[in-house]
Design a protein around this nucleic acid. Sequence first.
DNA 1: GAGATTTTAGACTATATAGTCCATAATTGT
DNA 2: ACAATTATGGACTATATAGTCTAAAATCTC
Lengths: 193, 193
Amino acid sequence: MPRPREFDPDLALERAMQTFWSQGYESTSLDDLCDAMALSRSSLYAAFGDKRALLLRALTRYTTKGTARFVAILADRPIRDALAMLFDELIGQILADSEHRGCFIGNCTAELARDDEAMAIVRGAMRRNEDHFRAALEAAQARGEIQPGVDATALARFLFTGLQGFRLLAKADPDRARLRDVARVMLTCLDVG
Amino acid sequence: MPRPREFDPDLALERAMQTFWSQGYESTSLDDLCDAMALSRSSLYAAFGDKRALLLRALTRYTTKGTARFVAILADRPIRDALAMLFDELIGQILADSEHRGCFIGNCTAELARDDEAMAIVRGAMRRNEDHFRAALEAAQARGEIQPGVDATALARFLFTGLQGFRLLAKADPDRARLRDVARVMLTCLDVG
DNA sequence: GAGATTTTAGACTATATAGTCCATAATTGT
DNA sequence: ACAATTATGGACTATATAGTCTAAAATCTC
């Protein structure tokens, strides 16, 4: 019956996300979005609502994919290897990103703290990631990789917080030596009884 | 000879800083600034240049005052007491701030990463603060509060990074229990040989 | 008190921006 | 093939915004 869509909504959303991630919310105009998504205004509004709705969907997409990558790295690996891998991968991405985009979640937190819906998505993602850390730490504890007395919840909160700080600092000053120092110290924190 | 200024430039700058801190750069209009600073456009432009120049001065002001507070807390105190005090003060401020403004430096990093001048100010502040941490850690090491083998530079980088993560997370989710967990684990990291 | 000089108030301009709308194109079912 | 239906292009609108400019106000020196 209807005329079919000429574009792939998922690809368009991915491109919108990349644009918001690079430029921030306020600094991204609808023209920027139409260009990046290769869409006319009509198609954009019909498919995604307005600019803010598009941002919320982009943010959700980012958190979903980020958490999935998180889970993949943490699974089936000694916790120290997993964390080392996480930091190595991150450092690689950070140094390769000439745009210094940082973490989209962190960027949204800084820019959109007064947007309750956006922050609800951010908080949800943070809590999920923290939970994955906690689960991984508890599993490691059960395997004897971490001392039994350690408070896995507190350690998970600490690790996730450190990770976000890591990405924020890297955005301002992507210096390999500094990043490696921070990653190294964070890893040693697993040894704290 | 001239007609004297009717306003206090320092107070006006402070108010501009508070406004940028609350709302971010792009979301702050010149009308917002004129209102907050109780200044007409002419006076604002004559005294501070344009909006961006005003932001750079506000950012400089924030970093200067922040670093001074930092130094005051770190001076003449056992390092563990100093860090505990730092976190306690921060948690108090965070929980009292209904606007969730977070750290202005972090906000600027997230929103203005593509502004080289702004980032130069941010990087300078970060490095200075990191240096103060390092100096305090080395002094503590000399006093025997920290084991001699510890790499003070790496630990300082880690602490400052953690602190920024702390403030970013708190902005998104100012939960007392989480903040206390993170602070506690960070403090125990001083014990890592 | 008059002239010189700077500040101030606020009107004004040019532009950018989010969002709307309508005419046309493309497709499917009958 | 034609009607029905949805997608698309892009013009259009209303508004907000950064920055400029002019005239009046306030002060100091002489």
